[in-house]
Design a protein around this nucleic acid. Structure first.
Lengths: 352, 352
DNA sequence: CAATTTTTGATTTACGTACATCAAAAACTG
DNA sequence: CAGTTTTTGATGTACGTAAATCAAAAATTG
């Protein structure tokens, strides 16, 4: 069926050894011969059998995922997805390691990247923090021939191969136009709860949101909750008290456990709330009607996409860009995916 | 690293040949011996190296996709995705064939299934038509040990292994609650444009929609456009003329090219329109503001999921149910994925 | 217990590729 | 043209599994 190295050798009129030299870029092949072999490869449409090659090489892909510590539920979901994917891809000779570093600590992140490089991994995926030290570490990794994917949060000016995450400006715009549609003609100002305006993701979401909210709508000064549930609860409780005619609230960061508690206490019915990331807390908010919509980036997709891209880079194989695009999911109470069971419980085994 | 058949043989104190007999269910192994080998397998946590096994077997998976003909854009997208996935999985020794049968023709569909079985494929994915002949054909395929996945449209009472598609009742509910939120207090009745009430998918979507629309809202009698753009255009144009106070319109089937034309002609601003499936037509409707939201099932996900499930079944390997769930996507003008280029143009090649 | 059947072991080949070794041939030196 | 270097061929082993063969050992039968 598919052509093999033997077919190439025959077609090019050379030995197997020479084909091997050409295929694997080994020295001591004349230009003419190399051209003949390459022509045969092109003619026959040969593609290397990666499975057989890996078997022969005894190759084991080793990928490092570097994630921030802390109680941000989304990050913990991400970590769970990374752990979950490990068994799934072990069949493909892929090993996935995780290192957890303090959040927003560029120095420690850069160190973790360097450590992974030193450990000899063939690919790294990391939740990036915008910082020169991190950019330098990424560039060092790339210079060492290691594939690099930024996860969730990007640094476009670095040498990373790929970004596995969403367009946060578009996410903000989506939230803004949904908010505008949900509010309709209803009067009243809109509040925004963010983690910190020093985070690029949060700034971008806010910018997109404001652009789509509509000129006639008053946008209150941004509340910064540091992604901390307790602070978020205090801030939201306070603004609800002080702004009786508040029409909408956009929570573009984390700490939504506090948001939901504050909403439940206030018992405001008419308030339109839009939040980010589908977590147990926001899911509960959707179910109880306290939250109108949740924008989400699928952590599982991001992790799987990162692994696919890292593997493709390591194999030197092209990848389907379209499949690797991470979508901005909109969830309302009626299109919620079923709650994920405990890891391992969601495997259906085969009867026969 | 990972244990091999040699390790099992050593651990169980038997020869390689006996391990092979146990692993592949060959005869002539005493119960005691078989138990010893199985204990060793369990102890060591051995899992067969599928890549190596397939290499040795020279196995080629052959899957058949059976799709309806016609100009339904979603089905054509589905076909394009199937063709697109072919190269992608050829590296995994998977070959994917497509047969196109007349739409809604149960007899021809059943014949196509039987033909695929006769051709010796190891798995079949088909857009099912609810019919006893089809159920019987699926059951024959399963009896022949062939994996079967229903695609987009399910027949739950058949012996199929899996359904790769969305929960249409939930999709209808989602459309209903979005419609209710978008309309707010605005008065006026809501119309529904369906393909045919004989289709289960369409009935389910309507049922879910009506359930979430709210008691105070008048739902006009369903318009049946037979998924035909010309008919849809006529029906929508007519109802817009006859119902000046129409507040909302839910298009739950195909033929949306006609819907968009009728909307553009009428130029109604306030009308809230929700449609299904992201096609060039509905995308244009979103961009121009004629359509407020589009519910979508990702054809690419469905095809890839079907292939994964078929392969897992053929390998006798468990699969991650959570990953195979097809989501109900909500698209508004701001979270539209970039338009897919021509097939083949969306591959980014690797520099090195 | 001899004859027969079943079970087990030992060994080999194959899949498609990677990689190493050694000899032979060809191409360059001076 | 002898000597040197480069290029090429021939061959073997390995990866982890499948599958086949034949002999040896064990169990079962009458």
């Amino acid at each position: 069926m598919r052509p093999t190295v033997h077919d190439i050798a025959e077609r090019a009129g050379v030995s197997l050894a020479t084909v091997d030299r050409v295929l694997n870029g080994r020295p001591n092949v004349r230009g003419v011969t190399r051209a003949r072999v390459e022509a045969a490869i092109a003619d026959l449409g040969y593609v290397r059998d990666v499975a057989a090659a890996n078997l022969a090489k005894g190759r084991v892909y080793s990928f490092a995922f570097i994630l921030p510590a802390g109680d941000n539920p989304f990050m913990r979901t991400l970590e769970a997805e990374v752990r979950g994917i490990e068994r799934q891809v072990s069949a493909d000779r892929i090993r996935v390691g995780i290192s957890v570093v303090p959040p927003f600590d560029a120095g420690r992140l850069a160190d973790a990247i360097d450590a992974a490089v030193a450990a000899g991994v063939s690919g790294i995926a990391a939740v990036a923090v915008e910082d020169d030290a991190v950019v330098a570490a990424i560039d060092r990794a790339k210079a060492a021939g290691i594939a690099f994917v930024t996860l969730v949060s990007d640094i476009a000016q670095s040498a990373r191969d790929h970004f596995a995450g969403v367009d946060n400006m578009a996410a903000g715009r989506t939230a803004g136009s949904l908010m505008a549609r949900f509010l309709g003609d209803r009067p009243g100002p809109v509040a925004v709860l963010a983690g910190s305006m020093r985070l690029r993701d949060h700034r971008e979401r806010l910018e997109g949101f404001a652009a789509r909210l509509g000129a006639g709508r008053v946008l209150l000064p941004v509340l910064e909750g540091q992604d901390d549930p307790a602070r978020a609860q205090a801030l939201v409780g306070d603004i609800l008290k002080r702004t009786p005619d508040l029409a909408g609230l956009y929570s573009l960061g984390a700490g939504n456990a506090g948001l939901v508690r504050a909403l439940a206490e206030a018992g405001g019915e008419a308030l339109v709330v839009i939040a980010h990331e589908l977590t147990p807390e926001t899911r509960a908010g959707l179910s109880s009607g306290l939250i109108a919509a949740v924008l989400n980036q699928d952590a599982g997709h991001e992790v799987r996409s990162a692994v696919r891209v890292l593997k493709a880079r390591a194999d030197g194989v092209p990848l389907h860009a379209a499949q690797e695009r991470i979508r901005i999911d909109i969830f309302v109470n009626d299109n919620l995916p079923p709650e994920a069971g405990q890891s391992g419980a969601d495997v259906s085994s085969v009867p026969e």
